[in-house]
Simulated scan of single mutants.
Amino acid sequence: MSGAARPEPRLVPHEDDDRLARDTAARVLEVLENAQGERGEATVVLTGGSMGTRVIGEVARSADAALIDWSRVNVWWSDERFLPGADPERNGVQAADAWDDSLELDWDRVHPVAGADEMDSAQDAARDYREELAAAAESEGLSAGLPRFDVALLSLGPDTHIASLFPGRQDVLREDESVFSVEDSPKPPPTRVTMSLGTINSAERVWLLVSGAPKAEALATVRRPGVTPVQAPGSAARGRQETLWLVTEDALPGVPQDPDGSPANDA
């Protein structure tokens, strides 16, 4: 995570879950449209969780979805549960269920993590995903082993985890591999595949979804001055161009609001 300083996160409150999902979907569509206007394609990194899935559904239902050439959208996942490919607990399966089939993705551009019925181990699945990322980067003429990510969506867990990077664990700091396996996740299922923090932070924009009163303490923790990535992984998520904390107002008690992050200006 070296290099130029990243913009500080900006807090953007929303009145409720519905508004958060709709407004985030609108933001995603705007980013995809602008990216396609600039270079003909666009890339999004998706997250799991109830709010991440709701955002996908709102994207699919939006009238502005017609502005996107979905055959030129690349889709990746920041993490996945190492379960059989059709298991309903997998982030990719939940995303597919929320999607509208009338929006025709090119399935060669959609990159689910291999399931437990395809690979012998999560380590194998992680290696396979690294190879897919490297191949995509090469096709874009990039040498860093990662394609360009226009936006990465993340969900903040009540313990401050993002993707499958959990607090109190040194693998939050891993930079030896862009994607790696997690064998003993504190949240079931224990075996997972996750992008590293550095891979997530290679995205041009990183947006952290924080929904509901149970996340208020986690949000306060990631905003605490001096908190480390190991103490609170969500605190270290930073996009190259932009970092947004997209939150519901009931997650805000006790958290100071940024002057430029008021609902009137940014929601």
Rank of each mutant, 00 (worst) to 15 (best):
D171W: 07
S178G: 13
H14L: 14
S211L: 10
A25F: 00
G40S: 04
P186V: 03
E140Y: 14
F149W: 11
P259M: 07
D128R: 13
V44D: 06
P112Q: 14
D150S: 15
N91M: 00
A134Y: 07
D97H: 14
G3E: 10
V255L: 02
V247M: 02
S178N: 12
G212F: 09
A152W: 05
D117C: 04
E33K: 07
A63W: 11
L153W: 03
S2L: 15
P147A: 11
W99F: 03
G48Y: 00
R109T: 15
L156M: 07
D266F: 09
G40V: 06
D106F: 07
A26I: 06
S71A: 10
I200A: 02
R10E: 15
A63Y: 12
G37R: 06
P88T: 05
V179T: 04
P13T: 00
L244A: 02
L133T: 03
R192P: 04
G141Q: 15
S196W: 05
A86N: 15
D120F: 13
S164Q: 01
R169W: 03
L142R: 09
R90P: 01
A25D: 00
V45P: 12
P253E: 04
D79S: 10
P158M: 13
D100S: 07
D23G: 15
A152P: 02
F149D: 15
V113L: 08
R224Q: 11
V182G: 05
I162H: 01
G198W: 08
L32T: 00
A60N: 03
Q36G: 04
A236W: 02
R205P: 11
A60G: 01
A4L: 12
R148N: 09
E89T: 11
L244E: 00
H111M: 14
L197S: 03
D97F: 14
M195Q: 05
L153H: 03
V151D: 06
M195A: 08
R54C: 03
N91D: 03
A35D: 03
G157F: 03
G212P: 08
I56S: 09
D87W: 00
V113Q: 09
R169E: 04
A213Y: 08
D260S: 10
A26H: 10
L246F: 01
F180P: 01
D184P: 15
W107N: 13
S262W: 12
R192L: 08
D159P: 15
A137E: 05
